[in-house]
């Protein structure tokens, strides 16, 4: 029998006391201003995976990102949990950006590609991921490397998720009325870097994606052909991903 790790619990409680004292020392009115209201500019939708803590990896402060995290960041239009979060964040909190974030080394993606059965309710939850896998079967099976194939599935899952988010009624109205932006990103667990995939509102009707990455605005054009994806950026760089 393994004993519950009470030490880790005490650690979290004492770390909280230290953090609270540190923040108050830095700025005595930090918590009193937080208590008034929240005005985050961002709604972050990511994976529950412990290796992708949004506030830490983005260097944000409490109050800056409204957060929803579920298994494999699957976005289902009839999931009332996610849809309630989006409704609350867009209509009431009035965020300006929705960032959907997938990540590399995702067990959900690897398991889906290996058709691994997880049991319980999990196989039902991951139906969305299998749908994406099956829709892109040719592209995915052409990728030799297992890890790369899982990253591509994670990207395609984010792409599918941004489509559902931008089709949400509250989101559509906010895009039109106040310029809400929807972004699709991938977090690289092995390097700690977040990459903008140029999806969501960055994509116009003609397939041109204007992506802002590394703080430098870039105009990108993504051409998806039968055998590969060509990515042209304004800065002169072009890359080709072969299917």
């Amino acid at each position: 029998m393994v004993a519950p790790t009470e030490d880790a619990f005490k650690h979290a409680m004492s770390a909280n006391a230290a953090w609270s004292a540190y923040k108050t020392h830095q700025n005595p009115s930090f918590f009193s201003s937080l208590a008034t209201s929240q005005k985050p500019a961002i709604l972050w939708i990511g994976c529950s995976d412990s290796r992708v803590p949004e506030t830490t990896i983005l260097g944000l402060q409490p109050g800056e990102a409204f957060v929803h995290r579920n298994i494999a960041n699957v976005i289902n239009p009839t999931d009332l949990n996610t849809m309630s979060v989006i409704e609350f964040a867009v209509r009431y909190v009035k965020v300006q950006h929705i960032i959907l974030c997938g990540h590399t080394n995702c067990a959900g993606c690897a398991g889906t590609l290996a058709s691994r059965e997880l049991g319980g309710v999990l196989d039902t939850w991951l139906t969305g991921l299998r749908t994406v896998r099956d829709a892109h079967e040719a592209e995915l099976s052409a990728i030799q490397d297992d890890a790369e194939r899982a990253v591509r599935l994670a990207e395609l899952n984010v792409e599918a998720g941004t489509r559902v988010i931008t089709a949400n009624k509250a989101v559509q109205e906010a895009i039109k009325e106040r310029g809400l932006q929807v972004h699709g990103t991938i977090y690289h667990v092995g390097t700690g870097i977040l990459r903008d995939l140029g999806l969501g509102t960055a994509v116009s009707a003609d397939g041109v994606s204007s992506v802002v990455a590394n703080g430098v605005a870039e105009k990108r054009e993504i051409v998806t052909g039968k055998h590969g994806v060509l990515d042209f950026s304004d800065a002169g760089a072009a890359s080709l991903a072969v299917k």
Partner: peptide
């Protein structure tokens, strides 16, 4: 989901 309660920051978890 409230922005003011980021799990890892308030507990110091990595």
């Amino acid at each position: 989901s409230d922005a003011r309660v980021p799990a890892e920051l308030v507990t110091g978890l990595l």
